[in-house]
Design a protein around this nucleic acid. Structure first.
Lengths: 231, 231
DNA sequence: TCAAAAGTGTTAAAGCTACACCCATGG
DNA sequence: CCATGGGTGTAGCTTTAACACTTTTGA
């Protein structure tokens, strides 16, 4: 974290120079999907003095998405599978000027909820209470973006385990979009899109017909569609 | 512009404080559409030592889109009609660390090309040569975004004069998308979308049937669709 | 044999693409 | 009267939405 001590600030002001360049704050909306326990879309919330999004600062010359990845990991103890920049805004906290660069991170359930990290809760997006209104704004926009991208990308990919049943995939979409979908139409669209391939195996889970297992054809991951190429 | 003079930097380093926070660079891809002279999508390019995008720095606590608007205006002499943030990245130039926040600005032809500003050229996007590879990357992504948004928003709105013929509107889309569109299908879609309203008037322009003039129903400007609410 | 989830087809409506001719005007 | 751009309709196809029953299994 880089900011000048108050007296230095005054010294520099007196000389007409500026230490008033912004501090960077990278904050991450880290999503994971609970398909088992109480099905819900959850985000990582850090509880220190109050509830906030995982956040931190970038090092000098560190690429911003490397920094966001590093912060997501160190703040939550979880390695994301997908990261995408969201939006940048200016914010003032206690006389300090921040430029807040927000990102979305995604991880599958097993990756996210198995790890136990002090101060980190994975909370249902419908119940999240964040102290900072900017954090709230970031979360709202992250949800808009995630829902929109579900329609024209393969972003759901990164919230599911490596193999899954058609019902699990549908439940994932339903949880994120927060509305029910028709089973037959859903399956048809998914199959037609060609992003799935059937594995040879089935999953037996209870006293009913076993479910075929699918995986994503990782060759055509289109999650990135409409974000710039990373350098 | 805020960066510390070298000797101050050393002083602060010596004391373990950091002046190494990034400098902000806001850069703007300012689009305008030439429908008359040589029809083309153009952007504002600033020529000082070499060709670059209009750019500048934010003031302390200035909201980033206010800053981008201010920079777009002061660098080009043109007031944009629409502004949207694009992407943020980290860059190093001559040992200085920049956080580059890019935006798209749009203005109609009359607004843009009537003004004459020293060092500013409005150049066809197909011919743009920019010294900085980051500027190039920003332009490429701006084009991707503009084209994509043409499909699901009313962003074209801001590149056209307040009233226009159906042919002009179609030409605008064709120029931006860089491919021909079917006249009848185009008209049908536009009318069906409900974003246009016919004015009572026609335009007589040459030895052929006069063209009906339309305007956008500003009540349903959906350009912003999928960008966060501005505070 | 029952309960529970998996899996499967059809129909109607809307939207998309491709395509060619007549209309109104000014010179 | 002719050259110029403005304006119009249809047919085939694809995509979407709505809708209910049969299959396979374990207990």
């Amino acid at each position: 974290m880089s900011h000048s001590a108050p007296h230095l600030s005054s010294i520099l002001h007196a000389q007409g120079a500026s230490v008033d360049g912004p501090d960077l704050r990278l904050c991450v909306v880290f999503f994971a999907l609970d398909l088992i326990d109480r099905p819900a879309l959850r985000i990582a919330v850090v509880n220190d003095v109050s509830s906030r999004l995982p956040a931190g600062s970038a090092f000098r010359l560190e690429p911003l998405d490397d920094a966001a990845r590093r912060i997501a990991r160190s703040e939550t103890g979880v390695s994301e599978q997908y990261l995408e920049q969201l939006y940048t805004m200016s914010q003032c906290v206690d006389e300090r000027w921040f430029v807040v660069i927000s990102s979305i991170a995604l991880a599958s359930q097993s990756t996210a909820f198995s790890t136990d990290h002090p101060r980190v809760d994975w909370v249902d997006v419908r119940d999240v209470a964040l102290a900072d209104p900017v954090d709230r704004e970031v979360l709202d926009y992250a949800l808009v973006r995630l829902r929109a991208k579900l329609g024209y990308t393969t972003i759901a990919f990164h919230l599911l385990p490596s193999t899954f049943t058609m019902s699990e995939l549908q439940r994932a979409y339903e949880i994120i979009l927060n509305r029910p979908l028709d089973k037959r139409n859903f399956r048809r669209r998914m199959v037609a899109s060609g992003i799935l391939e059937a594995t040879a195996t089935v999953r037996r889970a209870g006293s009913h017909r076993p479910a075929a297992l699918y995986r994503f054809r990782s060759s055509d991951d289109r999650s990135d569609y409409l974000t710039p190429r990373e350098h």
